[in-house]
């Protein structure tokens, strides 16, 4: 079971969180004309990365904040966690 540092609540067990997918995906702006390809990339197409991955988790049974977690998908190592509006350090 992962041990995730919520930027608001501190170290908490994985079972308090729910997974929210790739955090690098940006929703296209409302009312903007976009191609089918762009829309499909937003809705469906995801890279199944092996290695460092920036992903979303929601602290569901806690502060209910959506947070960003930088995790290695192969080793489960968590490098850093960020608030939703926080800049991700490279």
């Amino acid at each position: 079971m992962l041990y995730i540092k919520c930027p608001y609540c501190g170290m908490r067990s994985q079972n308090e969180f729910s997974y929210g997918g790739d955090a690098s995906i940006k929703r296209p702006e409302l009312n903007k004309e976009i191609s089918n390809e762009e829309w499909d990339n937003f809705v469906y197409n995801r890279k199944s990365l092996r290695g460092k991955h920036l992903e979303l988790w929601q602290h569901l049974s806690g502060c209910r904040q959506w947070i960003k977690v930088e995790r290695d998908t192969a080793t489960h190592e968590i490098f850093n966690t960020y608030k939703a509006d926080e800049e991700v350090s490279k």
């Binding site: 729910s18 929210g20 979303l56 929601q58 569901l60 209910r64 904040q65 959506w66 939703a84 509006d85």
Partner: peptide, 13 residues
């Protein structure tokens, strides 16, 4: 509820 929180916190803060 999670759906609304997602859009409010991440997409349209």
């Amino acid at each position: 509820l999670s759906h609304l929180e997602y859009y409010l916190q991440l997409v349209w803060p």
